[in-house]
Design a protein around this nucleic acid. Structure first.
Lengths: 196, 196
DNA sequence: GTCTATATGGTGATAGAC
DNA sequence: GTCTATCACCATATAGAC
């Protein structure tokens, strides 16, 4: 598993895009961080946007794959938990790629954005399938699965706004807490184990 | 209620920042959209960042005020509903200001960001107060109010990523659906009224 | 309060040598 | 596959006239 120059560029670019944002990061910034010239970068990528696109695609493919492994579990409640854990774990373990993907999509050209949207939609469709199975099996209330799916992704994706890697509590632990919250709600009579 | 040139600049800038992002929008873009010269803008604002800062402050003040009116209701469950409705309504009715604030904060200087963070934290503290009151009154389970508050804000704030103003369904309706979901959860025995 | 003109420097991207 | 040098352009911001 050698690391090619191309991969090193993607890693460093994702890190900088995450820290400063895609538009605020120059090709010069990336080259300098790697000890390369700008021209060297343009040997590996045709444009700055192509770097962003490759980062986004990689992140989305990994996310979709992680979600599809998780959703295989037959029990809907357990499948939902695993899906949420997988999403959070992938987020934390691929932090720069994930964050760049999630906040860089609006900077992509229409063609490239269409490709990323397809993967994003597939991930969301997978989540809805879990919810639909759960409703049909009677494990969940007859909720609007589009709305509930959006809610779950909101909880998980908003983590890019407050979670920082290296924090004592892992992202996957927050995913579990969210799973508990979204399953039982605020009003559930069962006292539960969480304190304030 | 006359509209000053300064206000017109803020309105137009917020619109463009929302559409293209702060970094990708030039002062030239704003001036051109208003039929003014760049120099005219610099008569009203000392820098591009000052425009972003004033937009963000206005949006946050309005949001905090809306939340504080809503949280006054004595019943925690109703206060939470009103808080969520107020947040969503403010979002939709002040769409460009709200979106610019929420996605422009990372472009602010440390000093300006500290000022906006204070207001953001106050809004979140208000939400936690509602939740704490509910837990103490027995209306809610003994949940982690920090986690639950973050969850509620995740649901509401992530709306900037999928909700578009002018859609047939109002933002406040999604807020009500989220309130129902977060209160009862996915597993609650009560069948409820929402279909798939 | 708005204009034209300009200062100053960075941007994405390329040419061509090695 | 990497370099130096450069192109053409646009950025934020300011000077000074009206």
């Amino acid at each position: 598993m050698v690391t090619t120059t191309k991969d090193r560029i993607l890693e460093e670019a994702a890190k900088l895009f995450t820290e400063k944002g895609y538009e605020a990061t120059s090709v010069q910034d990336i080259a300098q961080a790697l000890g390369l010239s700008k021209a060297a970068l343009y040997h590996h990528f045709r444009s700055k946007e192509e770097i962003l696109y490759e980062i986004s695609l990689k992140a989305l493919w990994g996310l979709v794959r992680a979600g599809e492994e998780a959703m295989a579990h037959p029990d809907p409640e357990e499948a939902l938990l695993r899906f949420m854990e997988a999403h959070a774990r992938y987020f934390e373990e691929n932090y720069p790629f994930f964050v760049t993907m999630l906040q860089g999509i609006k900077s992509l050209s229409p063609e490239n954005r269409a490709a990323t949207n397809e993967l994003r939609d597939r991930h969301e469709a997978n989540l809805r399938n879990i919810l639909r199975r759960g409703v049909e099996a009677g494990a969940f209330r007859p909720v609007d699965v589009a709305l509930a799916g959006r809610a779950v992704l909101s909880l998980l994706n908003w983590m890019i706004r407050w979670f920082r890697p290296g924090s004592p509590k892992r992202a996957v632990e927050f995913a579990r807490a969210y799973h508990d919250l979204i399953l039982r709600g605020l009003k559930d009579g069962d006292p539960g184990a969480q304190g304030a």
